[in-house]
């Protein structure tokens, strides 16, 4: 395209005016083209929303609001309720976050403070590669390798040692299947760990070194600098990143589908099989016979869409606030 700029110097003035006008028309066309592409993005979003609403209309008509708090899931009699999948989705995600947030922050602290400079890049890349592994691989490894190991070596031991502890004995009870809510949560936590670690590291790096140096100068230990200076400063970003990860955990499908056991009953024990919204859809959609069954699964999807939308929107707003603050500071 640089030849345009060159040749324009050599042509006469009327020709040049035509060229400029042509350029202007081409400019408008290109502008509109990019605008149209941008509108496609908007279209996809509203398309997803519209498709989920349209697809779930039969179920909405049939069950109304009761769909959200009924635990029944009987394809044979065509009675459907979303409570068990909603419960499973929320509980697995919360447990995954309880594991992944502290570990992710720990990795970020390691990467920014402890790790020798020469190891920083390789370790950072290794953690990010963990994020790139497709979720079906996590499902496969979880199902064939982790679950049997967990069943044999950890689950029985936990059940036995908690047998006299109030509350906990009910949470970790029952036959050790290997698969179940708890295994799914653990696999999920490994999946979201890299997101949390990466975002937290990035936010930690925005903390002005002057602040840290001042704290060190006052005699703080490394841990005190991280806990009382860096973390409070980076709070918005860390919470935003964690919520972004939560959004992923809520909708994660394949890794969970393999190891959760697909059971539409709510059990008190975390070791019992359960289901999540996305696992139900993945497991049952192609085999669902009857419009009402399919519509109920789509309505599950609609509920998941709303839940993840709220979480992601909150996360994005927090991260955007942070960006604006960083922009002002710079």
């Amino acid at each position: 395209m640089s030849d345009i700029a060159l040749s324009e110097q050599m042509i006469s003035i009327p020709e040049r005016a035509i060229a400029v006008r042509k350029g202007g028309a081409r400019d408008t066309r290109f502008h509109l083209l990019t605008l149209a592409a941008a509108l496609v993005v908007l279209g996809i979003f509203f398309g997803v929303l519209a498709a989920l609403v349209v697809g779930s209309l039969p179920a909405i008509h049939q069950f109304g609001l009761g769909f959200a708090y009924s635990e029944v899931w009987k394809p044979v009699t065509e009675k459907f309720g979303a409570l068990a999948p909603i419960y499973g989705t929320l509980v697995t995600s919360v447990i995954a976050m309880l594991v992944a947030v502290p570990v992710g922050i720990g990795i970020a602290i390691f990467l920014t403070e402890i790790c020798p400079r020469s190891l920083r890049r390789p370790v950072g890349i290794a953690i990010e590669l963990l994020a790139g592994i497709p979720s079906i691989i996590y499902g496969l490894v979880g199902f064939f390798v982790f679950a049997p190991w967990f069943q044999e070596h950890v689950q029985t031991w936990i059940v036995d040692s908690l047998v006299d502890v109030p509350y906990l004995q009910d949470l970790f009870a029952g036959p050790p299947y290997g698969i179940g809510m708890f295994t799914a949560s653990l696999i999920l936590s490994i999946m979201i760990l890299p997101f949390i670690a990466a975002v937290t590291r990035d936010v930690f790096e925005t903390v002005p070194s002057m602040l840290k140096e001042a704290a060190y100068g006052l005699g703080c230990t490394t841990w005190e600098v991280m806990w009382r200076v860096v973390l409070p400063f980076a709070r918005t970003g860390v919470v935003g990143g964690a919520m972004l990860a939560l959004g992923r955990a809520l909708g994660e499908t394949m890794a969970v589908t393999f190891v959760i056991g697909n059971d539409h009953h709510i059990h008190e024990s975390l070791f019992a099989p359960a289901t999540t919204i996305s696992a139900s859809i993945a497991n049952e959609f192609t085999e669902a016979t009857g419009d009402l069954y399919r519509a109920s699964l789509v309505e599950l999807g609609l509920i998941l869409f709303f839940i993840t939308f709220l979480v992601l929107a909150a996360a994005l707003l927090m991260l955007r606030m942070l960006e604006r603050r960083a922009g002002r500071a710079a």
């Binding site: 993005v41 979003f45 498709a51 349209v54 909708g251 999807g301 993840t308």
Partner: peptide
Amino acid sequence: LAGLIRFVNDILLSTPSILTGLFIYVA
């Protein structure tokens, strides 16, 4: 408009892919 599209795009980036699947199934 760009702000809105940016926001929607970031949401789509993390929207569970199974929901995109349902969208194409219906559409």
